[in-house]
Write a protein that binds this DNA or RNA. Structure first.
Lengths: 192, 192
DNA sequence: ACCTGAACACCGTTCAAGT
DNA sequence: ACCTGAACACCGTTCAAGT
């Protein structure tokens, strides 16, 4: 509908995501992005308000997915089954569609993301999701286990150095380790 | 001995570490560092070859500690007791002396560190240490658990949001969770 | 040995101007 | 609506020059 900007806006997003992931956000200049598109640096500012805002648009989908997941997680009972389901859905989201590239970008640019609005939003969502995962047990141990269970999904992308391992295998092992961590979070007494 | 540079070099390191941690490496300009010291930007280049090299000098101690720990870890038998001892020593190093500030810098600047020589060195050491921790079991699950055990130490700094928790408590809970993860790494058959 | 002043190429951003 | 050219203040780095 409001897609009046032809394809240029999408092409900028794609090229920026690629370069930001390869070289890092700060290390990639808008001149490079513009050159790759055969366009002038100033042209980018017709489509985006700032460099920061290019990242926001890339990360948008992911933020929405996380919001949906958080809402769902918070609506479920605080049981082990819920915790496992949340992590599994998270892993599904991370390993599916075009999210893996966004994911690699995220891993590469954690620090830069801190000073970007989109980055702070993402970080906030991670903490809310972790809180939802350890819902019903707010002990330090539970908080740490919840965060590490989410990290297990992320880490499986780079921590496992076995050659020729498939994405499916990475996911399986991530969930296996996450499950162990979650099992040590206490479930509150069942409510009548 | 070769400490001919009075105290300026050390003052630069201290101020840079502080600002880099607060605002991030890329977001901190050398002008800010210089101004804080009442000195000109160019003066910094008398003491350091580049901005990058300021970080290297800050991270130097830590690299040496990690080298020592890796060497020790690799010389020990591949038992659960060793894995636990490595993580415990790692935690001790992270929680002691002036390392906590370097640690926070490290957490804040993971991405920037990737394009810095010092950062790549640190990352390399982390992987070697993880490999040493899961020595004797190179399955994907073991690799992931080893990395997460190290992460547990790091994460305890920010993942646990309980107010008024002490550093000692953070360390205790980190080691508790790490121990669980390590227990699931297989020990090779004992050698005669 | 220690530091300054001035210059360098590059950065993100703005804006009047063109089609 | 879409893009350019030229300018802005700022960045990291260099270097001749001062003490």
């Amino acid at each position: 509908m409001s897609q009046s900007t032809g394809g240029t806006r999408e092409r900028i997003k794609a090229v920026a995501l690629e370069l930001f992931t390869e070289q890092g956000y700060e290390a990639t200049s808008l001149r490079e992005v513009a050159e790759r598109l055969g366009v002038t640096k100033a042209a980018l500012y017709y489509h985006f308000k700032s460099k920061d805002e290019i990242v926001s648009s890339v990360v948008e989908d992911r933020l929405e997915r996380m919001d949906a997941l958080i809402a769902w997680a918070e609506s479920q009972p605080a049981t082990l089954a819920t915790r496992r389901a949340v992590i599994e859905r998270y892993a599904d989201a991370m390993f599916s569609g075009e999210q893996p590239s966004v994911m690699r970008f995220f891993e590469q640019n954690q620090t830069a993301l801190k000073s970007l609005s989109a980055g702070r939003e993402l970080r906030g969502r991670m903490f809310r999701l972790a809180a939802a995962v350890c819902q019903g047990d707010d002990s330090p141990g539970a908080q740490l286990r919840a965060v590490l269970a989410l990290f297990a999904v992320h880490s499986s992308w780079f921590a496992v150095r076995t050659p020729e391992i498939t994405d499916a295998e990475r996911k399986r092992v991530a969930l296996e380790v996450a499950d162990e961590l979650l099992a040590a979070i206490a479930a509150p007494p069942a409510r009548p």
